[in-house]
Every structure is written in C-alpha cells, then in structure tokens.
C-alpha cells in the first residue's frame, strides 16, 4: 500500500514521456515495424482479392441485358391528297380551251391560298404499356449503374479502411508502446537515481512509486536491497559505537585507530541521513 508520506509528487508530463529513449524507442519501433509489415502483407492480399471480386462483379453486372424500350414511330407529316385537275371555262367550240391567239398561247391562273391542300401531321398511336416499359428499362439500367457504383464504392471502402486501420495501428501502437514503456522506464529512472546515490555512499529514504507505474514487484525488491544495505551500515555503526565506547572507557579514546573509527562512524551515520 502506498502511504501519502512515502510518495513524492512527481506528475506525469508529455515532456518527460521518453525517459529512456533507447529502450522505449527500440521497443516501440520494433513492435510498430513488425505490425506494419504484417498488416501490409495482409492488406496487399486483401486488395488483390477485392480488386478481383470487384472486377468480376462489375463485368457480370455490365453483362446484364435490360428489356429494350419498345420503338414507336415518330410523328410525321403526311402528303396532301392529289390535286384535282383544273377545269378551264369552256370555249365556243366546246373544246374547253381559250381561243388560240396568234403568236402563242397564254393562260391566266388565279390561285386561292385557302383552297391549296396542306400536309397533315400524323401522330402514331402509342402502346398502352409503353410508359411502364420505359420505366422498367431505365430502372434496370440505373440499377446496374448503381450496382457498379456500389461495387466500386465497396472496393474504395476496403482501400480506405485498410489505410485508416494501418494508420490507426501504427500511431495507436506507437502511442501505446511509448506510454507503456514509460510506465516501465519511469520506475527504472527512479531506481537509477537511487543507484547513483548509493554509488556515492548515500542511503537515505526510498519513496514509493507513482500510481499506475509498473514494475511494482521489482521496485519492492529494490527497496528490500536498499534496506539490506542500510541494515549493514546500521550494524557497522552499532558495533563501532560499542567499540569506541569501550575504548574510551578503557582510556584509549585518543588512540589513532579509535580516532579513525570515529571518523568512519560519522561518515556512516551521515550516509543514512
């Protein structure tokens, strides 16, 4: 259990996320690299299958035949009825012709526009199910086109999903790797600080880990080791104190060996403060 007084208030910060760069980056990059490699291989295979199936499906869809729209004749103009031969006023000879004039004939014709026959517009009859067939045809065409679009979209979705999951995997694992290794590197960093102190002969108090840190068991081992060294120093102090006291009582307090022992005792006591 972590007691409040045993824990120093070091807060986590993104600035010191990479405490042990070599270990953290090596571990994370290897993990991300391998995952990316495996996912890349899987993605390549998936895209090969996706491209193949999409191509087959699209070819199949495009090969479908829709019922054709029934043809109808376009509206057209019909030629007017044949013109009735013109009747000329009958002559006195009964031949019906004007008297022949010397030097050539001359006919005077008067046309009345109202009487000239005009061409008639003919609109052919449309079959009763024509509308339904047109709708059916275009529904079929649109359905094929939309299926082709859906297939293409499906292929694109797979590609985008692959890219997105690839990025998610890379960045997710990188973030997770750094965060998790930080939880290992944090306690190691703390232990390293204590190791440096112990190396220089200082065995002062050891504080607990932060909440959420890993290597709790390892840290407990370290604390026991630290306590063992402290106990060694304390037993030395105890023994030396007794010897110095006995030497002083026997009148040998000023003996150079006792003086040296006193200095050593002071050093050992200081190392525990």
């Amino acid at each position: 259990m972590t007691k409040a007084g045993d824990t120093r208030g070091y807060k986590r910060s993104w600035k010191n996320l990479l405490i042990n760069k070599k270990y953290q980056l090596r571990f994370t990059l290897f993990m991300v690299g391998l995952s990316a490699l495996l996912m890349g291989g899987l993605g390549f295979w998936i895209m090969v299958v996706a491209n193949e199936t999409t191509k087959v499906s699209i070819t199949s869809e495009r090969g479908k035949r829709c019922e054709p729209v029934p043809t109808i004749e376009a509206p057209h103009e019909e030629a007017p009825a044949p013109v009735t031969p013109m009747k000329l006023p009958e002559g006195p000879d009964g031949a019906g012709s004007q008297p022949v004039r010397p030097g050539g004939s001359k006919i005077n014709v008067t046309l009345d526009e109202m009487e000239v026959p005009k061409p008639q517009l003919v609109i052919p009859a449309v079959p009763k199910d024509f509308g339904a067939k047109v709708v059916e045809h275009w529904t079929c065409e649109v359905s094929i086109a939309s299926k082709v679009v859906a297939l293409e979209r499906g292929r694109m979705q797979i590609l985008l999903a692959l890219i997105a999951t690839g990025l998610l995997l890379v960045f997710g694992l990188a973030a997770y790797g750094i965060k998790m290794t930080h939880r290992v590197a944090g306690p190691l960093f703390k232990v390293q600080l204590y190791l440096a102190k112990m190396r220089s002969g200082r065995f002062d108090k050891v504080y607990n880990l932060r909440k959420g840190d890993q290597l709790v068991s390892f840290y407990d081992h370290f604390k026991l080791a630290h306590a063992g060294i402290v106990k060694m120093q304390e037993s030395d102090i105890e023994r030396m104190t007794s010897v110095i006291a006995a030497a002083e009582a026997a009148g040998a307090g000023d003996h150079p060996s006792v003086v040296a022992m006193r200095e050593m005792l002071a050093r050992k006591k200081q190392s525990l403060e």
Binding site: L42, T54, E61, K147, L151, I158
Partner: peptide, 15 residues
C-alpha cells in the same frame, strides 16, 4: 478487414 472482404466476395458470388 476480413468481414469487409467477405462482403465484397459475397456480392460477386451473388451476382
């Protein structure tokens, strides 16, 4: 990813 590719393959087969 497997589910997506299976879906695409199924569409092809169905067609």
């Amino acid at each position: 990813l497997g589910r997506m590719i299976y879906h695409q393959q199924s569409l092809s087969t169905q067609s």
